[in-house]
Design a protein around this nucleic acid. Structure first.
Lengths: 227, 227
DNA sequence: ACAAAAATGATAGTAAAGCTATTATATTAT
DNA sequence: ATAATATAATAGCTTTACTATCATTTTTGT
């Protein structure tokens, strides 16, 4: 019998912790699928309610609105990526090796993880690729940031920046490189599928391998180390 | 008496060419200011109509909906950047010099241009930074791309990729580098202002200089040339 | 200068989104 | 078994995102 791990996310994001109840988990599970299939703009709590056989009003008891739900899902995703990275570099000492493993773990954060039965990670990653920028490009960004809405992503970027600095202490832009890494990977994946003129990658099975190669080359060049 | 230049944008974007009438230009002018101040989500044609003293329905005669208007504005911005780049590299031969000038022109695409009286370019750039990703992260991206909704940006990226290739013919990712350049610059500017943990830049007057330096360093490193 | 054509204004109306409120019925905890 | 809590069922309200109609300007062609 599998026990679901759970992440502790910013409490301001929800009215009731969705990981703790059946309905809550169904909200998480189904919203990921529904946002993926409808797109965030066409996604509504009414449609989600219909999907899971519960009234709209019940969903409002968990999340104030669909924006909060999106931010929640995105935080969940970054917590999960962090968890995968830490797992994959545990017991390593060599900074270059740690960096290499970290980069590969980031790219591989696209496959199903049996530790979380109610989340389909590959689809959640699709949602992050397509919708995450909407979560932080809002008029209320400064308040929301103060409340901790983006903590998971910021912590992850800080961690990667640290790993980068351990390879090249003199590198001037570790945070920018770290955030750009995530944004770039997700953008290039999106472009490969939808706007191929904006990328050199082709949308195909092996795209992960190609992106992985590029990212190692890229970071290696910028830090002038061989990765 | 100043004569406004105008750009030829994809005709599918609008129902009536807004650059050709007084009301149309007021729509462009005021929508930029209003999207900047309200954010795209809270921006509506009703509010825009109130602002310019025209009924909502009149605006609908120019643009099918606010999404189309946003896409239009963003195309306008990229056409303008292209125009500024071409102006600044005219008569140059040396590929490295062309690349250097191009990068600087991109960064400097943040100041008022007196050739277009009805557009406040610095504010339009703010709108592009905050809202452009919403224009292409939609469920209808593939259809819209087919219709040419993103032509201006794709053409610009192609042009930069060409310039990059002329400096280093063997560089494998010219398109990805070009698109990443634009996305990175805009993201880092946004992060500096709103999510400082995600960047090494501080939001202050001289940020353009700092970003310019980083971008030259960055492209120089990746292409292994001195810029 | 004048009629025809085209653009704009004024106003109304509709469906859906984005909520909030209320009461009834299940579930769960003690 | 009962009290507390969560969920269901239903209703209703405001705003958004449009569409339609007709009157009034403004522009254009001759």
């Amino acid at each position: 019998m599998s026990v679901d791990l759970r992440f502790r996310l910013c409490e301001k994001l929800y009215l009731r912790e969705p990981q703790d109840s059946k309905l809550g988990r169904r909200i998480i599970e189904s919203s990921i699928l529904l946002i993926d299939s409808l797109g965030f703009e066409a996604f509504t709590f009414k449609k989600l309610g219909k999907e899971i056989g519960s009234p709209e009003a019940s969903i409002y008891r968990y999340f104030e609105n669909k924006h909060m739900l999106l931010v929640y899902l995105i935080n969940w995703y970054w917590e999960w990526v962090s968890y995968r990275i830490e797992t994959s570099i545990r017991n390593l000492d060599d900074p270059k090796k740690i960096l290499r493993k970290t980069l590969s773990a980031i790219i591989e954060s696209r496959s199903k993880d049996s530790n979380f039965s109610f989340v389909d990670e590959p689809i959640l990653h699709k949602v992050v690729i397509a919708e995450a920028s909407k979560a932080y490009h809002t008029k209320h960004i400064d308040n929301e940031n103060k409340e901790g809405f983006f903590k998971s992503y910021k912590d992850l970027v800080s961690r990667i920046a640290e790993i980068i600095s351990q390879v090249d202490k003199s590198y001037k832009y570790p945070r920018s490189l770290a955030s750009n890494l995530f944004e770039m990977i997700n953008n290039q994946l999106y472009f490969a599928e939808h706007l191929p003129k904006l990328t050199d990658f082709k949308s195909q099975k092996n795209i992960n391998k190609d992106i992985n190669k590029m990212v190692h080359y890229y970071v290696g060049r910028l830090l002038s180390v061989d990765l």
